[in-house]
Design a protein around this nucleic acid. Structure first.
Lengths: 225, 225
DNA sequence: CTTATAAATATTGTCGACAATTAGTCTTGA
DNA sequence: TCAAGACTAATTGTCGACAATATTTATAAG
């Protein structure tokens, strides 16, 4: 038998660590939206060869965080209100489905965990208001767990490994801290209830409305400017 | 002014051509499902260096056609009935939304084109039955155009540049030629009608049912075996 | 004969260099 | 002053070689 088949950490390659670090820097705005990446510069910064760097960059392109043009290079995707709205449409669609499936597949333990999480979020929210960052992260955590609960690996890949990084990027950039915090909390509660009741149809509707409301919030703010 | 800004073809790099060729070979089953790819072997076959090949491979990973493990290499994704059903769920979700948006955004010209396309499909179907391949390709062409008509670039990327290649892969592999051909044609007609009527809500419902029916078809066939 | 260990082989990860292309600078002419 | 073209510099695309890891084969012990 092989040694520690379960605990064996999947050996990280240099490209892996650079990939992860770059992803964070892009998401958190440390590397600007729309900016062009210089391969020689980055390779020097990380003290790796361009080959290794390019490996990391191509994976970031796969995540939708970078764009590439032949003979020109990689650039960070440009954030725009239109693209943000597009993301909302896709989330509305996919997460609605994820929620329906979660109602069918999520285990009681995971549902309980989700409830506990929500309680914590509510407490921190009432204790120290204005901590928009934590709120937003908590919100995404909630959505993340429901998608995981769907059990659909394709959904999980599309949302958790691609779209959610874009979502976080927008939040860092635009600061989505909205007056929807309290409402959103209520909506989360109702969604959990529907999941607990195994009412997939309702769960889907509630999730779609929940995300749709966020989108409309952005659209309204956009029109008033 | 730069020479032919519009007609200028986006210069193809070696990696580009290999990427396209490999994609086709994978989709059409020329390279087997689940098989491991040998970098030295492929590089030799295409008469390119491993660096260039790896560039192409990493892009194929981004499309979801290849999987990669550190220090082990790339392998073609393994097709399974479960994964096929997962794809149907995601398509049902995304294409439903695409259809709703298409009803809002699609131009009259594009709708007319779609109608003509359907007529052609119907003719070839009645003329020479059994040409399952053409039918299936035609079906995907129909879906493709509606997604394009949605105008949502994210949706277009997820469906047309990723999922549809997986779908075609399954069809080549499993041969989805089903007795649903005639029914599917009717459903397509109704979908177009809803789009033409700008009834996005109905268009979404019809598309979801259309794809859901295909999924159930597979599920039933699976259970009877 | 089976299992476990060790050597040998093959494959992937990483590197630095050169070729091809693009971007920038300078000159020249009107 | 501006524009077009030539020249220079910088960047990306591609290559082959070496290092690190995994796989296979060979060997030895039980």
């Amino acid at each position: 038998m092989q040694p520690n088949t379960f605990t064996a950490p999947p050996k990280l390659t240099r490209a892996d660590t650079v990939f992860t670090d770059l992803r964070q820097r892009i998401v958190e705005g440390d590397i600007f939206t729309g900016s062009k990446l210089s391969e020689p510069e980055l390779a020097k910064h990380y003290e790796i060869s361009r080959s290794t760097l390019r490996d990391a960059l191509s994976r970031l392109e796969g995540c939708g965080l970078l764009e590439r043009k032949a003979n020109i290079g990689y650039r960070v995707v440009t954030l725009s209100t239109e693209q943000l709205l597009e993301i909302f449409r896709v989330r509305e669609s996919l997460e609605g489905t994820a929620c329906r499936l979660a109602a069918k597949n999520m285990s009681k333990e995971h549902i309980d965990d989700l409830r506990k999480l929500l309680v914590i979020h509510n407490q921190t929210e009432s204790l120290q208001q204005g901590e928009a960052y934590m709120q937003e992260e908590g919100d995404l955590d909630f959505h993340f767990r429901i998608v995981m609960g769907s059990g659909n690996k394709l959904l999980i890949r599309l949302l958790c490994e691609e779209l959610y990084y874009l979502v976080r990027m927008y939040r860092f950039q635009f600061g989505m801290a909205s007056p929807r915090a309290k409402k959103a909390f209520r909506e989360h509660e109702n969604i959990i209830q529907a999941i607990e009741d195994k009412d997939g149809e309702l769960a889907e509707i509630l999730m779609r409305r929940h995300i749709s409301a966020s989108r409309l919030n952005v659209e309204n703010r956009m029109n008033t400017l």
